[in-house]
Design a protein around this nucleic acid. Structure first.
Length: 427
DNA sequence: TCTGGGGTCCTAGGACCC
DNA sequence: TCTGGGGTCCTAGGACCC
């Protein structure tokens, strides 16, 4: 059996941990640039605040009901996420935990007898809350897709389920499938859901479970669809994945605080994003051979398709893979020159690194010229200082000093758990 | 002008996820 | 006035090879 543990309203829960007076009050957390709403407490959901809706549109409602609003604070969420995952690893053993996202982990429960699953799930929920202050929901079922489905139902009816649902019999599974609209199945997005409903009259998970594998292959994206249907049937087709697999692509992209027309501002931003992406690259001891840059222009006509701004991108393949910020900034800035059009207003830019390979010079490579090893040490030092002191104490000049393009984040809480000078104070 | 079969590698783009 | 960011996997199709 497999389980998925999912933190309830994760970002909101993190904020409440340090402002407990907000318990039982409506809370929302905003995306970068204070653009959209990406986490809502149950109370906020009840008020009708939409998920992923633009903040400015929800503002009247938010003000009327005095909803607490936070900009996203990824240092805080990342650290609390780590604590939750450590708790799970302690309870179940490292190899039985697969971290799936910042607020979710799959668990392999095959080590437990069937009649203990309910009790195990309860212990996981209670211990996690006690150790970290974060409430979680637990869904248990024979496959990952069914576990996700169980988890969703557990959350939907918290009073009744106590945030736990174990699907351990065919009857329970069928009932759960019946209660789940196709669009709410993990792996069925908006496009497929529309198609399934309109063209084939398939509205719930039970109906989808009963289609042929051939059908799934043809209409739901080939082997992906076939696997999905098998999982619904209770046949495990998505196995537990190994942890700590290196990323195959690393991206840093941001909206600008306000649209930007000056090429120098764009270059500063791109240099900054490149530095950030290179840090991520070094953290996983990798190097990249392909760097691509994109810019998105601001669409004048944003009445209907607000995010249809034209994207222009270009890439360079480097002569050799590297993780040195300076070696990546140079080609990145050259790419900006090929993309930039004078007179255009831009709202977003981004850097993507791919062609990722293990960085052989991590330990200092005898066969590289001395200078290379020095650069490696320089990068390590910069990373260490930036991590332990303050973000960007040390940075490359190309990343600019004024940073007029920086994103808005007006309602950010403190980094209570990762910065000495922002520690929570008890008076 | 006619012209097979089998394979690899790469890229762009579509779908999905949180 | 104001709509996020960072990933994954898969497929189709083109270029190229013998």
């Amino acid at each position: 059996m497999k389980a998925i543990v999912d933190c309830n309203n994760f970002y909101c829960s993190c904020e409440r941990l340090f402002e407990p007076q907000l318990n039982n009050k409506p809370v929302v957390v905003l995306s970068n640039n204070d653009g959209c709403i990406i986490s809502r407490s149950d109370e906020a959901k009840k008020l009708g605040v939409e998920m992923a809706g633009p903040y400015f549109m929800a503002k009247p409602l938010i003000q009327k009901y005095n909803v607490a609003v936070f900009s996203s604070n990824y240092n805080l969420y990342g650290d609390l996420s780590w604590r939750v995952m450590e708790t799970l690893r302690t309870l179940l053993g490292k190899k039985n935990v697969e971290v799936y996202s910042v607020d979710e982990a799959f668990l392999d429960l095959d080590i437990f007898p069937a009649n203990e699953l309910q009790a195990i799930a309860k212990e996981i929920r209670e211990t996690t809350e006690q150790w970290t202050g974060i409430k979680v929901s637990v869904g248990v079922a024979p496959t990952k897709v069914l576990a996700k489905l169980a988890n969703r139902l557990a959350k939907k009816n918290k009073q009744k389920t106590n945030c736990i649902m174990v699907l351990d019999t065919d009857e329970k599974i069928i009932e759960a499938l019946q209660k789940t609209p196709v669009g709410d199945i993990w792996g069925v997005g908006y496009q497929y859901a529309q198609k399934l409903k309109e063209q084939w009259g398939i509205y719930d998970a039970l109906q989808l479970r009963n289609v042929s594998e051939e059908f799934a292959r043809t209409y739901l994206g080939g082997v992906v669809g076939a696997r999905l249907v098998r999982e619904l049937k209770g046949e495990a087709s998505k196995e537990m994945e190994d942890e700590l697999v290196n990323k195959k692509m690393i991206a840093t992209t941001r909206m600008f605080g306000t649209p930007v027309a000056d090429i120098n501002d764009i270059k500063e931003a791109v240099a900054t994003y490149t530095s950030r992406a290179a840090e991520k690259l070094r953290r996983q001891h990798s190097a990249a051979r392909i760097i691509s840059v994109f810019v998105v222009s601001k669409e004048e006509n944003h009445s209907v398709n607000f995010n249809r701004g034209a994207t222009h991108s270009n890439y360079t393949t480097l002569p050799a893979a590297t993780s040195f910020t300076n070696e990546l900034i140079k080609p990145a800035l050259a790419l900006v020159d090929t993309l930039y059009k004078k007179g255009t207003l831009y709202k977003k830019a981004g850097v993507m690194l791919s062609g990722i390979v293990p960085d052989a010079s991590v330990q200092g490579n005898l066969f590289l010229p001395e200078a290379k090893n020095c650069e490696r040490k320089l990068m390590d030092m910069i990373d260490n200082i930036n991590f332990s002191q303050r973000d960007d104490v040390l940075k490359f000049a190309a990343t600019g000093t004024t940073r007029d393009w920086k994103m808005r984040q007006e309602l950010k809480s403190k980094r209570y758990t990762t910065r000495w000078e922002e520690l929570f104070e008890v008076s």
